[in-house]
């Protein structure tokens, strides 16, 4: 394997890692901070891809990004209202929205399950033309993704230290305390989920435009993949300050992609991506559990040996 190939692989992993890390940051807000497992993530990712693709096809490549973010925020708002104001269980609210989004996404893509962006100007193709004569040639995906991630990380680092951000963190930590601080946890949950879904949709929009197509299954399994990345990042930066943890989430996404890319080189079939992410999530949950249980397990074994 030549050096250029390795570099190329590294760049692809970095690009895809960065784009995916937006979903990881979304989960960082909803799952780590708000303690809500948002199962509408897959559908919301596809929603972002669909909206982004259609707006780009309509001839507004730059507008496609804010449009996707807005669509995602609407979806997050619905998920939040279902679980805070309409008595739907939190997990169920996500599942219901996810299912509903399938139809919504196909409707947005004009009744088709695949939209091609080959001959359509996207943020990436526009930037590609700009960068062609410069030294940054061929790095347009990386630059856009990096910029998006940087904005989101800076935003989160600032936001989670404001009073509203603190309330959102406390809601996931101790809702009773939020109420006794005269803050309505319904409001904080709604704001948190709305924002986090905006990031998810942005990620979907960027992925669709970078791979020049949006299909209805683009987001399937995204929640597990992102959760795996989040947990990998948490291993290294779990108890640090908020900005460090946010960057940790991004690094986790990159590491996950890197391992996956390397595995592909060693002839792992590409359809194994989702199984890999499932296994990582399971391990990330199981290992701490095992650490707690193992001493007791040993003692029980000893008691059984000696006791008889």
């Amino acid at each position: 394997m030549s050096f250029a190939t390795i570099l190329g692989l590294g760049q692809t992993a970095l690009e895809l890692g960065l784009i995916n890390s937006l979903v990881v940051l979304s989960l960082f807000l909803s799952y780590s901070m708000l303690n809500v497992c948002d199962l509408s993530t897959d559908g919301c990712f596809t929603l972002g891809a669909a909206v982004g693709a259609m707006v780009a096809i309509a001839g507004y490549p730059y507008l496609s990004l804010p449009a996707a973010v807005c669509a995602g925020m609407c979806s997050g708002f619905v998920t939040a209202v279902l679980q805070t104001r309409m008595g739907v269980d939190s997990l169920l609210a996500g599942i219901v929205v996810n299912t509903g989004l399938y139809s919504v996404n196909i409707a947005i893509m004009g009744g088709k399950s695949l939209v091609n962006l080959n001959k359509v100007p996207t943020v990436f193709s526009m930037l590609k033309d700009v960068l062609k004569p410069t030294a940054l040639k061929g790095l347009e995906t990386l630059i856009v993704a990096l910029l998006a991630v940087a904005i989101v990380v800076v935003f989160l680092s600032w936001f989670l230290r404001t009073r509203l951000g603190l309330s959102i963190r406390a809601t996931g930590n101790n809702p009773d305390m939020v109420r006794s601080s005269s803050i309505n946890p319904i409001m904080t949950t709604t704001v948190g989920l709305t924002i986090s879904n905006g990031f998810t949709a942005l990620s979907g929009c960027l992925l669709a435009q970078s791979q020049k197509s949006a299909d209805i299954n683009i987001g399937s399994g995204m929640l597990t993949v992102a959760l795996a990345s989040l947990l990998i990042g948490g291993v290294f930066f779990g108890r640090r300050r908020i900005p460090v943890r946010a960057i940790g989430a991004v690094i986790g996404a990159f590491l996950f992609r890197l391992v996956y890319t390397i595995a592909l080189r060693f002839n792992m079939p590409s359809f194994m991506l989702k199984a890999t992410s499932s296994v990582i999530v399971i391990l990330a949950m199981f290992i701490p559990y095992l650490k707690r249980q193992y001493p007791n397990f040993c003692r029980r074994l000893e008691a059984r040996k000696g006791g008889r």
């Binding site: 603190l166 963190r169 406390a170 930590n173 101790n174 009773d176 305390m177 006794s180």
Partner: peptide, 8 residues
Amino acid sequence: MRGSAPDM
């Protein structure tokens, strides 16, 4: 434990 957020 009820009156404060432990992770903050």
